[in-house]
Design a protein around this nucleic acid. Structure first.
Lengths: 192, 192, 192, 192
DNA sequence: AATGAATGAGCCTTCATTCAT
DNA sequence: CATGAATGAAGGCTCATTCAT
């Protein structure tokens, strides 16, 4: 049973690496089997078909990302710091988990992902909505739309990751601070 | 020769539509030929192979996007307005050209795109660098990194387009203004 | 187009031979392609899938058998002679077309055959019902059920063909006459 | 050993049901194992391979059919009655043992069946040859070939079973009598 | 003796590409 | 130039058989 779990994990990891580099249709099941060190037929003991691997992988990574997002948030923390810490958590997850990040970028909007899994992902976003509501209530931020914040949050994370991936510029702490300042200053109250 | 140009255009357009909806490997060449109203073999008179269509299509769209970006910018315009107008040009290109936008999202980071084409794209970004330099010089904006601006610019455009595509919320002028204000205020406002 | 028809015929003939000897699932499409002298992919230009070959083959052979059954029946012929000639026509079709006969034996009751094709086959049996009705009306035969005649007709044909196939005994004209006499005498009026 | 015998029987019974409904290649060994309530590997302790199950099953059913054929034949019985009783025994075995009957129809002529098993089946037909000889000797029937009788006997049985299976007409006692009368009258009645 | 997880050969089918017309 | 019939390599998936437990 422990061997089983391990084998399944190896298949998922192999799929993540290969599919991110070559795309879903560019990755034969035989190649996944090879990389995972199992027979091609073995994969079908653990997954109903090729798409099911993607789905399970997506769910797996989303859970992982969510856990990382919520980690190390002190109890009594200001809106600014909670926002900053969560944004940094997500950003560093992307920067430190290259394959997971690219996978999410490619498959978040793909038809492979079942509606159930997508639904669950949306449910996990509740904490962000609550945070914005708190920020608006306490006057820490302007009355901004939730989607405004989401667009800025994910937009910056995705672009910073792609910047790192492209190799055009190193993503330094300075750059990260620079961007956070723009976003936060833009969202927080205007001092006119 | 005019017929030639037209036939090639029809192949490119058919590829754009089909490949965006079904993916590269989900779109047989025969389907492209059918949609373009040409024989399957004919495609190979205009393109070396299937991948070459993608590459050329990418170049084509990038040029188109660049032209749209530069359109209707008055001669003597403030940094804020130039930035705003260009950002809106890009954003509306994405919102109005659904297939082109999804294509760029899917294939910008794909291995199909040749280094030459990527290089040319980067060269076309010079105007943005110049604009930021002017902004910093005139004090219109803080001393922000070029990449800070690029991350915010493309991040917001991509996310707004995906928001529209996902159908979760309509992308209204209010939302667009909201987001622009955050970005601009964040870039321009002076720390006390 | 003539080449097309020929190629399709060769695929059907190859399928008949191979599938009769090895069974449907014992005959890979690649083997059919090989025997027909075409590429494996070519088969799918002419047939939607493997089952479709069987279906078309069945329809083809049924038509052929029906034509053979009706051949050389003089206009003004007695019930006995019409019955005898048709029975002989069917029997000789079976004895002379070994593959077709075995194919019918194996696939007449198989789930591969579509209801439409089966329906058409039943419609073609009308002439036999008419013949029996005439025989009963004219007093040439006893008042026998249509199914009694059908059971005897097909039962003897199938068994004689299998006898020939098994090689246990040669199917001579004497044996054929012997059997026909039993069937006809049994059906015709009793002389008590 | 009793457990062994039982397990083997369960495998044979499962095979009979499944293979008759789904065909040899349509029935995975794992499905047989499941239906029989044994592990897939266990089957290979009792049979050399999948084909061997068919062969043994065929022998098994032939023995069963033979026993049924010989049952309830009184000692001093006329040729007509012995023929009639045996024919009815066979026929009712077919009508009452649907799976066994369909299995025989499908696999009697199949390459799975070994020559030894076929040979043994033929040896078991001796009683019918003896019966015909007695009939001819006593004048009860005309001088008909053994194969004439065999063709009529098996032909009618197979066709009646298929008629029942097809659902086109119920096989009533009247139809059975009707057919027996034709066969017996044809074999016995004197030409004038 | 019994199991069932693991294997990989082999199946049906698709499709990028070629080439005779 | 244009076509589309033909090809065969390659893909996803199944399943008979083996073997470690």
């Amino acid at each position: 049973m422990d061997e089983s779990r391990d084998k399944k994990q190896r298949i998922l990891q192999a799929t993540l690496r290969l599919i991110t580099d070559n795309g879903f249709h560019g990755t034969p099941v035989s190649m996944i089997a090879n990389e995972a060190g199992v027979g091609a037929g073995t994969i079908y003991r653990y997954f109903a078909n090729k798409e099911a691997i993607i789905n399970e992988l997506y769910d797996h990574i989303q859970k992982d990302l969510h856990a990382a997002t919520m980690a190390n948030i002190p109890a009594d923390v200001s809106v600014r710091d909670e926002f900053r810490l969560k944004w940094l958590n997500i950003l560093h997850y992307f920067l430190d988990h290259h394959y997971e990040a690219r996978f999410l970028e490619q498959y978040s909007a793909s038809p492979f992902i079942s509606p159930e899994v997508t639904e669950e992902k949306n449910r996990r976003n509740a904490h962000l909505k609550a945070l914005i509501a708190r920020g608006v209530a306490t006057g820490a931020i302007r009355e901004v739309d939730y989607h405004t914040v989401a667009v800025l949050l994910w937009g910056t994370v995705y672009q910073l990751h792609q910047l790192q991936t492209s190799g055009m510029r190193q993503v330094t702490e300075d750059l990260i601070d620079d961007i956070f300042r723009v976003v936060w200053d833009g969202m927080s109250k205007r001092q006119d």
